[in-house]
Design a protein around this nucleic acid. Structure first.
Length: 401
RNA sequence: GGGGGAAUGCCCGAGUGGUUAAUGGGGACGGGCUGUAAACCCGUUGGCUUUGCCUACGUAGGUUCGAAUCCUACUUCCCCCA
């Protein structure tokens, strides 16, 4: 059997920066055997894109790969249809099989920006859950108790607040635990909020007569709001497929206080380099952070470009490279001109004409760099105008003659 | 199976017959300051052909000059008892 020979293959190296490990003694014992371990990480394809928060465990998984181990990337296409109740205060909407399939495909592509495909085994949990019948599900349910489930903070809070908890949500941790049995995991990693689910895996493996998996939890990446765990639904996330400029810009809006943890969790910069950056100008440090992030997913060149454009727009008050341009519909032209409110709504700079009026009233609209103060302003036919809403939304419109 | 409660704008949550597009908070957006950070200040936050009109307080009806507020049915959720 293949043996592992790597400088990073020590308990200390593999646990650096983690939150907890159950248990490190067992981990040391497993590592001593010298054979590659199966390290499981599961993602539910419940939304179309992965974000930087997902990338934290992926990066950590890469560390294991580099130390000579095998990543078992589990696509929870069956569990995605239940929805992980962790941290949720409401039942998730159930997804269709088609939605889940579509998401799964994009997930893999995104995950391999970080993972080494040579040392990754991809599995889907529908492979075994589709085979299970109702009686199997009942057996699974018999492995735990309601009291135990209600111990979980997320359920307890909801229950006490009178927020409904659907029965199937109790099944989620059991399914995730079952996955560990199916993939014969040696180690499972996850965010620190996953502790309950990970430990459930140990129980199920023990019940199945297997050596229980080691559970390692990682720090959660706090989102751009500076308060909550990064999550797409909270709007505080940076997607791995976001455009370089978008990614850079969003990263720059990160609260200063989060910089140390972001450097640690999202970049590979050395501790010394990070310390040096943090000691300097916060603006420069954040620029370096943003550039590192963009470079990881889009390459050095894109990072440089995004950084330059950012400076041009926000420091030098210039214009972005790509300004969307629209030729307005001829129907909007009346008496040789177009009402600016119509122009704003038709290109999406305002959601409604009421909003467009409000934006004008509050001084947030510019046409060719001139502040528009009259709600009744009109754009002449045959002209081309650069409309700007707020500081960062631009759109060029051409008014047909 | 029986009994009791609840449903309000993006979210939470006041409002129990009459200046009500509906107190307050959060979020979001715009402006100021700035480093597109934080903090702070100001403004906005249903739609439209905007001095006005229309649509809104779970759904459908009803009472009334007038309803988010009262009545009936329905839907959904919560709690208690069994």
């Amino acid at each position: 059997m293949e043996t592992v020979v790597s400088s990073g293959n020590t308990t200390e190296a593999l646990l650096a920066g983690t939150v907890a490990c159950h248990s490190s003694a067992e981990l040391s014992a497993k590592l001593k055997r010298g054979t590659p371990l199966r390290v499981k990480f599961g993602v539910d394809p419940s939304s179309p894109d992965l974000h930087l928060g997902h990338a934290v465990p992926l990066r950590y998984l890469r560390r294991w790969q580099d130390a000579g181990h095998l990543a078992v990337l589990l696509l929870g296409d069956a569990t995605a249809m239940v929805g992980d109740p962790t941290g949720k205060n409401a039942t998730r909407p159930q997804l269709t099989r088609e939605q889940v399939e579509a998401h799964a495909a994009t997930y893999l592509e995104q995950a391999f920006h970080v993972l080494d495909p040579e040392r990754t085994e991809v599995v889907r949990n529908s492979d075994w859950f589709d085979q299970m019948n109702f009686m199997d599900a009942i057996k699974l349910g018999a492995t735990t108790t309601v009291a135990r489930m209600l111990e979980r903070d997320t359920f307890e809070t909801r229950y006490k607040a009178g927020v409904p908890i659907s029965l199937h949500e109790f099944l989620y941790p059991l399914m995730q635990a079952r996955d560990s049995v199916e993939v014969r995991a040696d180690v499972e990693i996850g965010g620190s909020d996953q502790t309950f689910n990970l430990l459930a895996g140990r129980d199920q493996m023990r019940d199945a007569g297997m050596e229980p998996q080691i559970c390692i939890t990682l720090p959660l990446l706090v989102g751009l709001d500076g308060e909550q765990k990064m999550s797409k639904s909270l709007g505080n996330a940076i997607g791995l497929t976001d455009e370089p400029r978008e990614m850079f810009g969003r990263a720059m809006s990160l609260p200063d206080a989060l910089m140390p943890s972001w450097f640690q969790l999202t970049t590979s910069l050395s501790e010394a380099r990070v310390a040096e950056l943090l000691a300097g100008s916060p603006r420069e440090a954040k620029g370096a952070l943003a550039a590192e992030i963009v470079a990881t997913y889009h390459g050095e060149a894109a990072a440089r470009e995004a950084s330059e454009e950012f400076d041009r727009i926000f420091r030098d008050k210039g214009l972005p490279d790509d300004i969307p341009s629209t030729r307005l519909q001829a129907e909007l032209v009346e008496d040789g001109s177009v009402w600016i409110v119509k122009a704003l709504t038709s290109v999406g700079l305002a959601a409604s004409s009421g909003e467009a009026r409000r934006l004008i009233r509050s001084g947030g609209v510019r046409a060719d760099d001139e502040k528009v103060s009259d709600e009744q302003a009109r754009l002449s036919a045959g002209g081309s105008y650069l409309l700007r809403v707020g500081k960062r939304r631009f759109h060029r419109v051409e008014v047909p003659a």
